[in-house]
Write a protein that binds this DNA or RNA. Structure first.
Lengths: 248, 248
DNA sequence: AAGTGGTCTAGACCACCGA
DNA sequence: CGGTGGTCTAGACCACTTT
């Protein structure tokens, strides 16, 4: 039953509930979920409310809908023709390395031109900056520096510390799973092959000049607002980024 | 005014109209667009219809919305292209370089393990190998080595020679446009940052050790069969690869 | 206080799908 | 045919921002 407490929107509660049922396997991939009208009755909400929840879950790729047939639980990510970059933990484990993550620091910075443009905030606005170091067998393999608007940023930092306390390795990608109220819808990334400069060489503990993959990412919410501007640097010899996409 | 012709949904027509106004500059980046209630009156539709149009445009990144303030035209994205890797010619022209292409060679090779696996053909099958050099202002910037099954391969080589004769710069991406009977549907790519070895350094005319982007591509037809297995090497300082994709 | 977007209701008609 | 999702209306109240 949904809580009549209006501090959390009904459609959001319904989303969370369905998400949970999918994650726990109460709803299985390929299975039809109850129809919109059935959900209206079960949860005592109007159809538009149900539709908003289903539309957003479909947009996030957890459900797919077919006119005249019903709404179904989507196959897990890999089956989907979705473009996906290998996440941190699995990419290292597949090399037989034990991944871990260090928080190098978190601080308030003021937005420079690049960050301000990417996040659509005024120049010099306060941003939360979170820097992480990804390790494999205790050796540095990746460095992340991410900027967030203040409100989200503080939550991300808290989520990072919580993960760290539980000793769960993570990258900033993974932190979104811990903040159900922040729903990334889309991201843009640019990939560049660079040489390690002195600073990055020291952080990553490798000789200057070694090749690094530099990825610049902007993450957008479903309301179109950017929430994260991130620079990531990966040891070239430790990472490959795999992508499947439609041609043209 | 929206057409009462119901073959196209009203919210779709509203989306198209707003998209057009953004593209032509009638609505400028950062500018506030009319409020939801104003749009209701202007287009004679209900507020939910307006909201569906605005929500989707925001989700696509053309608009962003702020509670209590309004709906605004988003700053243009840093990468203009959608899920699309920057094609050869435009990426150089945007740097002010004049692009050209050389055919380094074409020959019949027998499939090694990697190529045979990627193209789903027996080991040692004959393949057509085409190697190209991409230049900017006569300086090498990219090297491509592509393998095709024999039939398609011969056509691709012919298409490459034809482009060369017309002095049109191209990469192997572009050659598919010349072969209407070959329809690539999907491709997988892996991106890797590497150091230029002696051989690649010589081909690309740069010092060994410089960073290169190494992209391995497999192109699939709409019938699911692979048609091309390609290794591309790009000077790290000359190329960035932009991608927009759904999150998760 | 006035205007904005965010949520929500209780209906309606349509187009598509399967039996 | 009955059930599904897709579109649409005409209201309502709320939370947030600016004046």
């Amino acid at each position: 039953m949904l809580s009549p407490n209006h501090s959390i929107p009904l459609y959001q509660q319904l989303k969370d509930d369905l998400r949970e049922k999918i994650k726990t396997g109460a709803l299985k991939p390929g299975e039809r979920i109850p129809s919109e009208r059935e959900l209206c009755e079960q949860y005592h909400v109007s159809r538009m409310t149900v539709r908003q929840a289903l539309a957003e879950l479909a947009n996030e790729g957890l459900l797919y809908r077919t006119h005249g047939k019903g709404t179904f639980v989507a196959r897990p990510r890999i089956d989907q023709e979705l473009v996906r970059v290998t996440p941190f933990e699995s990419s290292l484990r597949s090399k037989g390395l034990i991944p871990s993550t260090k928080i190098l620091g978190s601080k308030i910075v003021s937005a420079d031109y690049e960050a301000a443009t990417a996040l659509a905030v005024p120049l010099l606005s306060p941003l939360v900056n979170l820097t992480l170091l990804g390790l494999g067998n205790e050796q540095p393999v990746a460095y992340y520096s991410a900027c967030f608007p203040e409100d989200t940023g503080h939550k991300m930092v808290a989520a990072a510390r919580a993960r760290l306390a539980r000793k769960v390795p993570f990258s900033t990608y993974d932190l979104y799973d811990d903040l159900p109220e922040v729903n990334p819808a889309r991201l843009t990334q640019s990939f560049e092959a660079i040489s390690a400069g002195a600073e990055l060489a020291e952080i990553l503990d490798l000789p200057p000049g070694k090749p690094l993959m530099h990825i610049t990412t902007v993450v957008y919410l479903d309301n179109g607002r950017p929430v994260e501007y991130r620079h990531s640097y990966y040891r070239g010899d430790m990472y490959r980024f795999h992508i499947t996409r439609p041609a043209r």
